[in-house]
Design a protein around this nucleic acid. Sequence first.
DNA 1: TTGAAAGCGATACCAC
DNA 2: GTGGTATCGCTTTCAA
Lengths: 334, 334
Amino acid sequence: MVRRTAGVGRDATRDDVARLAGVSSAVVSYVVNDGPRPVAAATRARVLDAIDKLGYRPNTAARSLITGKSDLIGLIVPDVENQYFATLAKAVEKSAAKRGLRLVLGQAQPDQLPDLVESLAGHQVDGIITATPLPPDLLVRTGRLTVPLVKLSLDQPMDAVPSLSPDFYGGAQQAVRHLAEVHGHRRIALLTGGEPMDVRERGWHDALLLLGLVPDCRVQTSWTTAGGRDAALPLVERFPEATAVFAASDQQAAGLIAGLHALGRRVPDDIAIVGFDGALVGEFTVPPLTTVGVPFQQMSSDAVDQLDGGTIDKRIYPTELIVRESCGCRVGTE
Amino acid sequence: MVRRTAGVGRDATRDDVARLAGVSSAVVSYVVNDGPRPVAAATRARVLDAIDKLGYRPNTAARSLITGKSDLIGLIVPDVENQYFATLAKAVEKSAAKRGLRLVLGQAQPDQLPDLVESLAGHQVDGIITATPLPPDLLVRTGRLTVPLVKLSLDQPMDAVPSLSPDFYGGAQQAVRHLAEVHGHRRIALLTGGEPMDVRERGWHDALLLLGLVPDCRVQTSWTTAGGRDAALPLVERFPEATAVFAASDQQAAGLIAGLHALGRRVPDDIAIVGFDGALVGEFTVPPLTTVGVPFQQMSSDAVDQLDGGTIDKRIYPTELIVRESCGCRVGTE
DNA sequence: TTGAAAGCGATACCAC
DNA sequence: GTGGTATCGCTTTCAA
């Protein structure tokens, strides 16, 4: 076939650049990648010039084919619209960009994960970060997968997958203890979206026991703002004696505040609330949400590092209580 | 080089499959792609079997190299953490997934756009959807770009880029008219994050004029919840006569509600508010936010279609007033 | 310091 | 209905 020259409708290739610069295509490669061989300054200049003239841009697919890397990493979340995952996605994208990696975003519920993972692997992503829990069978197949996987912000069972997460257990305890020790609450309910006795629930449960209190007020709903709102009624009906609640996510806490308000309950006067996440949303609820902050940025950055040759494997990050007003504290409006 | 057989540390290739199935590599391709040539049922079964045994997954990079398509589309937003863009991203991802396309998410402020676009183009994305406004010079270069571009949810100036957006102008008017005609407000302020006289502002401005009112209360802040909150003080100080405000985004409206609350002002009694977006956040503010809803799903789906061979070019989508309580309406808590 | 050339994995045309 | 094979754009070894 006749070799076409660069023109409309076709990207310039490395050969075009080579021809224009009057060098071999290998040299173009050397200057683009700054190696593996040195190039004379004058030659380099000519090549750079040609690149600019042609608007040449290396074809990542071709490069990927040969190097086996794509500079792409996959991020799997259940739902980006959820503030928590949006914050996570933002942090991961930033960390990735800093390393010249691009983010392929996939949303999936656990049952769609296998397909999504296959698809990402097909796209030669250099690694996958998942904030959606993995179904056990996927875990088994993981051994066969060539793609590095790391779990982010998920409970950490005994498996072989590298995993980075906040200290769900300790954080939940912080929340409960604040409610009990600072504000004197003795009936502290749990609002969760998780499985019975997931890590946050255990934190709540054990903290209460340690305090000599009874962990018997538990409401389960979906991990969403709507879920939190809808839980308001069951909460006040089933546990009228509860004067405080630890919500396992800020999304739910925000919804709960709205739901409680609609029911005529005052927060924190009638019911105090502490959330979990430290997501943006808690800053703007009325009243502002006291919550357990997690180090998104740090975790995300480490997750990317991990794929980029790191060796963190498993790590649990300390949380920090962010005191605002929904717990009953008075803080100056800054 | 000696041909290795499939084994640990290396993905199975089409050749491996061909060998195992005892067919040529072309046939493998035919069954994988369902064409362009027919394959005998028995042969197809053998191939499928081999694929399964080997865990074969076509290498998208290689395919992309030859077809020129990557099944990847780029989405550029200023900030995924922002609820509005998170909702957009979710919708776009869903529409893309439905067509077998994967989403590459990039965050960028206008000045970083050129690099990001270059990078995405290098990754051979089949198209780029941007919800970050394009700097004019990028627009010029666009002519040289091989990558289809479509603007999503952005103001539509006179340029040659396909663009899909809600009816910012009409929507703003809806909001203002509701405040004036239904609730009798005569001093309706504008809270915006946009340039002076952007489309939403023009809608507010013109609606007021049409109503015989004066468009002289304008507060500008950032397009964020924090921006909305911080605007509360300037708003009440500079325009104490304002009894209502049209906020150009729900993010800002949510922040404004919080800020106003901190200042001791009641919404909607002291100040009524109508937002713009119909984002999730407005559902859970206290009081719930009346807002101008935009058809995220439809726009996003059309944007993906557009890249996928569509010919929509420019389209403006009708908005719909979502009446809740921040405007002063009483609606049953459902 | 530069160039020729061998692939990377997959597609699709052209014979058989 | 199947099987060679040229080719996509690029990296990198080996010679020059």
